[in-house]
Design a protein around this nucleic acid. Sequence first.
DNA 1: AACTATCATTTCACTATTTGAAACATCTAG
DNA 2: CTAGATGTTTCAAATAGTGAAATGATAGTT
Lengths: 269, 269
Amino acid sequence: MQSPQTASGTVKKALSVLDQVASFERPVRLNELVEVSPYPKGTLYRMLQTLRSEGMLTYDETQQAYSLGIRLVRLAHTAWTQSSLAPTARPILDALSKSIGETIHLAQLDNAQVLYVDKRNAQRPVEMFSQAGKVGPAYCTGVGKAMLAFLPEAELQQVLEQQSYHRFTPHTLGSVEELRDELSNIRTRGYAYDREEHEPGIICIAMPILTRTKRVMGAISVTSTTSRTSLDQLESLAPEMHQAADAIAETAEHWRFPVEQKSKEAMEG
Amino acid sequence: MQSPQTASGTVKKALSVLDQVASFERPVRLNELVEVSPYPKGTLYRMLQTLRSEGMLTYDETQQAYSLGIRLVRLAHTAWTQSSLAPTARPILDALSKSIGETIHLAQLDNAQVLYVDKRNAQRPVEMFSQAGKVGPAYCTGVGKAMLAFLPEAELQQVLEQQSYHRFTPHTLGSVEELRDELSNIRTRGYAYDREEHEPGIICIAMPILTRTKRVMGAISVTSTTSRTSLDQLESLAPEMHQAADAIAETAEHWRFPVEQKSKEAMEG
DNA sequence: AACTATCATTTCACTATTTGAAACATCTAG
DNA sequence: CTAGATGTTTCAAATAGTGAAATGATAGTT
């Protein structure tokens, strides 16, 4: 998944090990890692020790297995607060959720994948991390396509190459060509649909979040099921979603450039 | 906050830089970091580049400033799922929340600090990362004291030394001695109170989550305000909370040791 | 209890990466 | 145009990381 061999620097290497551990999604033993890792056992072992002593990994003695450590959760809290659209978008999502009453997602692009950074659920009250932090494919989700559509060509090219084009359902777009056509439609329409492309019975409408200069910041979506509603009905939400997306973009842009006051004397001491 | 100078290995160093960036809680420029970092500018610069190219930091060109990257959010999702009590505890917290109707926290110890890994709010429906991932002091919170009380002496000693003993309110325990007395009371009582020790008007009752062998896994708490309720009233929740804590511990222990089936042949080929 | 297979851990000479002081480049404001 | 501050690059020296192979540790088998 993650660039496996391109790990010249030590830090790169460490992070790739971290990813490798993450990819198991369960506690993993040294020998299991050896089999999938390009590094020899000794090297891996030392790396795991380092990461463990740093709290990036936890170690279960009885199982002799490593998992990602909770220090990451702490860091991620700051990352989420600092670098995601979620805190900015929160009041806007709340309002949208109250008004629409369906499941709402807020997503950003991370490494050619869709990263969900917030969610409002139709029924259930809380979902927490189980949703925020989740990743999904870009080529077959509403938010993914909405973002891809407005990516500059150079970046888009790269991202398109990294998609799997696995056919989750009969409606999944299975090639770069099909996807490019779809993206062009999305560009003219201004927003994207998911026509049961990722999961059967699940449809959604997704609106990109664009800066004034049309750079992609993220996307929001409203999801429902074919049994409850139709794409036509979802489409009626477009204006409201567009407004929300604009509001998020504007707030985020203002937020990111607070007064450029430098306190020169203050820090010198 | 984090061990600043102890960073011999390259990975250690990189992570300490990451922490340093996190500690600013806003985008930070190279020169700002230079002033607080033990490393020379050139070294720092290269480190930041590496972390940036790895997606652990994001860089805002217009501000020339670094923030924690969203790759961390992705990793943390896995960490939270794998290594925290949250997924296991979820149904139990849901039930508790429904029954009690007050704010409920689930916390674990991380590096002498309280790390909140889940939350159920009395009023508001969703809080997400904004709460999970947050850290707080151990010596003056209910969950913190509940966990400290059942720590083995050796670990406890270390943790106690790392507390600030800052007096947030007139009720805050301001020294190791006072805290040790309190912990001894908690041990005999079986659970902890927060008597407005962290925030005026905020009280709570906290129950440790212990393994069968009495090792501390985490703690749960029910929080309220002095205007709405009293410690005596909260105390009546103790049995229910005790039951919940036990349930979490048991589920977690069973969960961690699934059938130790090794598929020897499966992986070799 | 000895034997064996499977991992985890350590060793050590070799090497590639990291270091950091100082030079250089770029930007901003006066 | 110059001054002051910050960001970026350089290069020899130092250090930290490498990995094949030996050594421990552990669980299972006869």
